[in-house]
Design a binder for these strands. Sequence first.
DNA 1: TTGAAAGCGCTAACAG
DNA 2: CTGTTAGCGCTTTCAA
Lengths: 365, 365
Amino acid sequence: MNPERRSPAAEPAADPASGPSGSRAATLHDVALQAGVSLATASRVLNGSERKVAEGFRERVERAAEALGYTPNVSAQATARGRSPVIALLVADIADPYFGQIAAGVARGADEHGLVVTISITERDPDREQRILRALRGQRPQGLILAASRADLASSPGTSPVELEAFERYGGRVVAFGEGQEVGEGRTARSVVLDNGGGAEELGRRMAALGYRTAIGIGAASGVRTSDDRLGGFARGFESGGGRMDRILRGDFRRESGAAAMTEALTEGVEPGTLVFAMSDVVALGAISAIREAGREIGADIAVCGFDDVPASGDVTPALTTVRLPLNEAGYQAFRAIVDDDWIQAALPIEVVVRASTPGLVQGR
Amino acid sequence: MNPERRSPAAEPAADPASGPSGSRAATLHDVALQAGVSLATASRVLNGSERKVAEGFRERVERAAEALGYTPNVSAQATARGRSPVIALLVADIADPYFGQIAAGVARGADEHGLVVTISITERDPDREQRILRALRGQRPQGLILAASRADLASSPGTSPVELEAFERYGGRVVAFGEGQEVGEGRTARSVVLDNGGGAEELGRRMAALGYRTAIGIGAASGVRTSDDRLGGFARGFESGGGRMDRILRGDFRRESGAAAMTEALTEGVEPGTLVFAMSDVVALGAISAIREAGREIGADIAVCGFDDVPASGDVTPALTTVRLPLNEAGYQAFRAIVDDDWIQAALPIEVVVRASTPGLVQGR
DNA sequence: TTGAAAGCGCTAACAG
DNA sequence: CTGTTAGCGCTTTCAA
């Protein structure tokens, strides 16, 4: 006889008054015992999919579970089933509203499916990302969502694809923001694509149409995909409308970076009527503060536009012209891409939002 | 003989070229086999804490693990060890910058300790929170951080404490934002307290000193702790300085709510020189937009102040007077409260930040 | 239908 | 120091 590995759950197992710690959580075993059924039966009524348990037993088990406050141990279920209910989300910085909204979308989807989302912060550091990916693999997540645009995930022939391949090998699905993420052997991950290039191009055209002829770009380091796409798209559109990109300043995705870049530009000199295009609203907000500090005016003097349409963009004065991205929806799509076998990539609507920070120029030039 | 439960890992187990799915991840067993050592030894060098493996074996194991791309299965480790490496974070809305910053702080701490953070969204719905708590228990997290201020978690003698008690019973630690969260049997959870009342009181005093005499408050439903504390504190300070709270409008924590409340107030009439205190910056921003839309001016006409000092508050024009909270640090503290046995509650610095949205009144009244 | 028993991948006594 | 061998809590054949 061996089922008595521990003391029988007969009495104290469910006693809520036992010490804060030390006591243990009720197990399936406890429930089965209390209900007078086998482990298998208890498992079937509580967690098994196909129902085929006599009503009488089912009731007793449910009652017992209720009485004991039983909750299945997710880790144990995961080891036994060979798959865990987690979706791992990788973002650069969860405090950044851009990622915050994406995360909200992912969480919404996961919640609908009873999955848990785990979140990791890369801080845009490739090494860090690498380590995280490795550790994440240990969770054997059903899906991995890469929302953290790293410099060259796709182009680096190095380690990353290998790491991602490992996920797919055991059946985990990798979804990336932005097209073309390799996952080894020439295969690419499913991807949620926000048409950064297209949106920026349209923005550039609109700005040119407004009469702007000279623009300064503020981006991240060259090679950072998102930034490159936006800057490139903007230049294309702006130039097609007769404008010219005067120069491009480099920094990162933080507000301070935008302020620093702008300060630098102002030092070198910025003519009235110039337009500043920052590749993200957060950076644009930083640029705006720098412009103000330099005693210049936003709008007629120096116009500014950004990208993302984070909530704050509508609140500043003058309100920021930008490109609206359906970030929450994008996060949700990423989630669907993981759970739907027949998922097909849907285009996400992007929209240019012209506001007061880029007033129309009365006279050209 | 039974160790050959599966086909020996001798050949294809590690073949990176095998199909995307279908193949399985390398197990400790595979590593041990390849290294020619026992499972126990492999476990010791790879995951065991106390080192006591001969250099030769250690190397062989490490080499094998490397070659196979082995990563320990977290779920299996969790079941075997009886504790899982997860910290569960409960927030109302991850897209809200308030929670985003807290989450960043928690993630920072977790990362330092190799723990994974799991995030759940309550949407401030008590039932939802209840369900989530229940499901979360299944993860047997080492810690549970309640950052989602629910209406009356603490005061409701109902279900919640019971649910939380379950966590503590098996050794999980519960940390709450805000004091006095019960976890059953009269015990309270460790708490990270942001002195909402004190900060608001100081703000109220400062506003009174600036010459304001009449204020309108915008809060969440009565009973919501955070909101009550802030509103109450502000009233105390403001009145101590000779001001008077004219009325309090109710809504929730969203921007639109602030706009709606303010619109209502404006309909009823708001005299020039009135100060509006919104219990959160996000709500204040909504109020500001409503004031503008009504054709009134922020500052000299209707002054506005908020609470939190989210990044956007410094970017709006006029910049918003508010109370700065060290949210990232608070999140980090919450994490420490979980992992440090001898954690002691540290006071978090709160600071009133007076900006242009509340210019000094030249003449009293 | 139900239950016995063999796993899932890993850890942790306990002997050698 | 190393290997054997029970577990951890749950799922899932496979007979009965």
